[in-house]
Each structure stands twice: as C-alpha cells, then as structure tokens.
Amino acid sequence: MQKMHKTILGYVPEASPLYEVHPFVRLYFLMVVSIFPMIIGAPEWNLALILVVLVLMKYGRVSLSTLKLYVPISISMGMLILLSYTLLGGIHPEFHVVFRILGFPIYYERIEAAVEVYTRILPMIFVMVLFLSTSRERDVLVAMRWARIPFTVTYMTAMALRAVGMVIEDFSIVRQAEKARGFDPHGKSLGYKLRQFVMYIIPLMALSLRRSEEFTKAIVARGYSFTGLKNVKRPDYVLSKYPFRTRDAVLILIITGFLIGILYLRYGLGMLTLEGSVTQRWLRQWLLGGAA
C-alpha cells in the first residue's frame, strides 16, 4: 500500500509532487491565486482557472473525491446568488425581461451578473480545497514560520489547530454520554432537541478551561515565555527540515508574475472583463436571442 500523508482534508500519497513544494509556496498560492478571480470578470477565464486547479489536483494525486464534500455547498451558493440576483433583486424597469415567474420579471442583466459572481466564487473555493487537501496543520505552521511571523503567533495557531481536533473528539464523547443516559432526539419536539443540543457546549467549554491550566503549566515547564531567553535566539529546528529550494523561489516568481500579468491585462489593457467576454456573447445569444 502507498504511504499516505494525512492532510487537513484527507489523504495524499507521500510521493505527491505537490508535497515536494515548500509549504510557504502552497500558502502563497492560496493567498495570491485567490485574488485572481477578484480581478478577472470574464467567466470563461475564471472557469479556466478552475480547470488549472483541477489539473494541479490530478497532478498532485489528490483524491478528487474530497471535492464531493463541497458539491452541496457550491450548489447552494449558486442558488443563493441566483435567487439574490433574480427573485430577491427587486423591480428594475430599465433591465431586459427574459421571462416571468408568477408574474415576477427575471432580468437578463441580473442573470449575467449572477453568472459573473458565481464564476468568481467557484475558483476561490477550488483553490481553498486544493490547499486544504495538500497541507497538513504542520505545513501551515512551517509556512508561517518561514514568513518570519512571530513565534508566539505561530505557536498560538498550532495550539488552536490542535484544540480543534481535541474539541471534535470531546464533542463525540459528550454526545455518547448524553445518549448513554437515554437522550433520544427521535420524535421529540424541536424545543426539546434544542435544549439538549445546548447542553453540549458546557462540557466542551469546561474541559477546555481545565485543560488550559494544564497546557500552560506544561509550556512554562519547558521553558517557553513571552520574551524567550535573554540574549538567546530561538532556533527553528522544524523549519530546517523544510529546505527552501530554487524551484520554490521560481514558483513564487511565476505566481507573482501571473498576478502582475493579470493586473496589467485587466487594468492596463481593460481585458478580462465581463464586457465583451465570450460568455457574455453566448448568454445574450441564448437568453435574448441577440437583442440588446
């Protein structure tokens, strides 16, 4: 069997080429490429970005099934945007009516805008899924440490991520403990269910408060203080296990280059906008039959 790395969102083969990339590059990819859709207006280019992310996932041997988790969210998000832009969008006599639902006008301009917004949001989600499914919690920390973020901050992040796992585990035990005392939500009123649901939060919080004292003692006992030792530079052993190679620098340059390129195309040359995009032409053809 292949050796797998557990990531935040599942498993990736240890041999994945993406795993070879320095964690900071992966974080940089998330932060920078997430900006692309905000600049780009033309839906076809944003769809192309999704394609690029998918190709990267395939190349990185990320199981595409993790994407399944996000299908419902993507769909509901799309519906929500569509609703917001059509039925909840108000009356606008200046727009073109495509058809009416129960007498309520659905405008072409609104659909167009919804498509634009939706195709902007989707690649952002894909980039996030790519990051979450190729990074472990430790990678996030290495990336932050590499970026010279103060140790206190990265350490707090580490503990927070650790606490997430702990709370999830506590949560399932607490639920079992409630069941063991005969709590059965089936066929009970909503108010009753809600009251019981509310109960979870007390042991979760109480356990965390108790643990915080123990954690603190354990950290202090191992010599960590706000200021660190006097005149001692804190070495970074973990970081030394993640060498930053030329290849990583090149990747950063490429990503940055793309950002500059897209900025130039959009604001310098006025390209990549919805206006005049292929998608807009198709939409018009299809919905308005070439009118307007």
Binding site: R138, A158, A218, A221, G223, L229, R234, P235, V238
Partner: peptide
C-alpha cells in the same frame, strides 16, 4: 495535557528550541 504541537517531532524539539540550542 502537555502536548501542544502537531507532530511528535515538534513536541520533542519544542523545549530545545526554547533553550536556543543550535
């Protein structure tokens, strides 16, 4: 109650890093 790191390795080196060891 004393584990605050994401891997065993990080956990073991935490104290040594705090001491500023090379």
């Amino acid at each position: 109650a004393q584990f605050t790191a994401m891997t065993v390795e990080d956990e073991v080196v935490f104290g040594m890093e705090n001491l500023g060891l090379p």
